[in-house]
Deep mutational scan, measured.
Amino acid sequence: KYSDMIVAAIQAEKNRAGSSRQSIQKYIKSHYKVGENADSQIKLSIKRLVTTGVLKQTKGVGASGSFRLA
């Protein structure tokens, strides 16, 4: 599940300011076997996790910027 992968990526990075979408994508692609549409799936999952309150956006708008666990 992409949401689990995103949470794992943010936990692994341990950046106080949060993790960027690009760094999350890079982590997921190197640690998991994902399909061609992974980028758009990650983007959608990040937006969903922010609206449900699992992630907090520290910089930027939408799916860009930095995110950390709430």
Rank of each mutant, 00 (worst) to 15 (best):
T58E: 11
R48C: 15
N15E: 05
R16D: 10
K47T: 08
A63M: 11
L49C: 04
Q22A: 13
Y2G: 00
I28R: 00
Q22D: 12
Q57N: 06
A70W: 07
S66L: 15
K33Q: 09
T51A: 14
T52A: 14
N15A: 07
A38K: 04
K26G: 06
K1I: 10
I46R: 00
Q41A: 12
I42C: 03
I42N: 01
S45E: 15
S66F: 13
S23A: 10
I10D: 01
V54K: 05
S40H: 12
T51Q: 15
R16Q: 10
I46P: 02
S64C: 14
S19M: 10
G18E: 04
V34G: 01
M5S: 02
N15S: 10
A9K: 00
Q11I: 11
R16M: 11
T52E: 13
T58D: 08
K29S: 05
E13L: 15
T51H: 11
S66W: 13
Y2M: 08
K56H: 09
K59V: 09
F67G: 01
S19C: 12
Q41H: 09
A70P: 04
I10G: 00
A8T: 05
L44S: 08
L55Q: 00
S3L: 09
V54I: 10
K59M: 10
Y2F: 09
D39Q: 06
Q22T: 10
N15V: 05
Q57S: 07
K29W: 05
K29C: 05
K59D: 07
S40A: 14
K1A: 10
S20C: 05
H31C: 05
Q25L: 15
Y27W: 10
I28S: 02
K43W: 15
V54R: 04
A17N: 13
D4G: 05
I24P: 01
R16A: 13
Q57M: 13
M5E: 01
I6R: 00
V50F: 02
S40P: 05
E36H: 13
V54F: 08
D4N: 07
Y27A: 00
K59I: 08
Y32V: 01
G60E: 05
S19T: 08
L55R: 00
Y2L: 08
A9R: 04
T58G: 07
E36M: 09
G35P: 09
K26E: 14
S20V: 04
V61F: 11
T58A: 07
E36F: 10
G35V: 04
T51L: 14
L49R: 02
E36R: 14
S66A: 09
V7D: 00
A17Y: 14
R48G: 06
Y32M: 04
V7G: 02
A12E: 04
I24M: 01
F67I: 05
L44D: 11
G65P: 15
T52N: 10
V54N: 03
K56N: 07
V34Y: 03
G53K: 05
T52K: 12
S66C: 15
S20G: 04
A8R: 07
Y2A: 01
A70S: 08
R16T: 10
D4W: 14
K14L: 06
G65A: 15
G62M: 06
T52W: 07
V61C: 13
G18I: 02
S19R: 06
G53H: 04
H31M: 06
G53L: 03
K14I: 05
R48Q: 11
A12Y: 06
R21E: 15
L55V: 05
D4S: 08
I46H: 01
A9T: 01
V61G: 12
E36W: 08
K47C: 14
N37F: 07
I24F: 03
R16N: 08
S3C: 14
V34A: 05
K29T: 07
G65C: 15
Q22I: 10
T52H: 08
K56M: 13
G60H: 07
Y32L: 02
S19W: 04
I42P: 00
S30P: 00
A70T: 08
S45W: 15
I24H: 01
A38I: 14
G53N: 03
K1G: 07
V61P: 13
V7N: 02
S20A: 05
K33N: 12
E36A: 13
S64I: 09
K33I: 10
I24K: 01
Q11Y: 08
Q22W: 09
K26P: 00
D4C: 15
S64T: 11
T58Y: 10
R68N: 06
T58I: 13
K43H: 10
L69I: 08
G53E: 02
L44T: 08
G62D: 08
S23C: 10
S40F: 12
I46G: 00
Y32W: 07
R68T: 13
R48W: 14
G35A: 07
D4K: 08
V61Y: 12
I10W: 01
S30N: 08
V34E: 03
G18S: 04
K43N: 15
G65W: 15
L44N: 08
I28W: 15
I42R: 00
S45G: 12
T52G: 06
Q11W: 09
Y32A: 01
S30M: 10
Q25K: 07
V7M: 08
D39H: 06
L69H: 03
A17S: 11
L55I: 10
A8M: 06
G62R: 06
Y32N: 02
E36N: 13
I42G: 00
N37C: 07
S66T: 13
Q22N: 08
L49E: 00
A38W: 06
A63S: 13
H31V: 06
E36S: 12
Q25G: 08
R48F: 14
H31I: 05
T52P: 01
V61S: 12
K29G: 03
T58S: 09
V34H: 02
N15C: 12
G60N: 08
D4M: 09
K1F: 09
F67Y: 14
V34N: 03
G53M: 03
A17E: 13
I42A: 00
S66R: 15
I28K: 01
E36V: 11
A8D: 06
K43A: 15
K1S: 13
G53D: 01
K33Y: 08
R21L: 15
V50C: 15
R16C: 15
L55H: 01
D39I: 08
A12P: 01
K33F: 07
R48H: 13
Q57Y: 15
L44M: 11
V50G: 02
F67M: 03
K47M: 13
Y2E: 00
L69Y: 06
E36P: 14
I10P: 02
A17P: 04
I24A: 00
I24W: 02
T58R: 05
A8S: 06
T51V: 13
Y2P: 02
A12G: 04
I10F: 01
S3E: 15
D39Y: 10
I28C: 03
G62E: 07
G18D: 03
S64A: 09
D4H: 12
I42T: 01
D4P: 06
S64M: 11
A9H: 02
T51F: 13
I24Y: 01
E13W: 05
A70E: 04
T52S: 11
N37D: 14
T52D: 11
I28F: 03
Q57E: 10
N37Y: 07
S23P: 13
V34Q: 11
S20P: 03
L44W: 09
I42E: 02
K29M: 09
Q57G: 04
L49V: 01
S19D: 02
S19F: 02
K47W: 15
G65I: 15
S66V: 14
I28H: 01
E13M: 15
A9W: 02
E36L: 11
R68P: 03
L49Y: 03
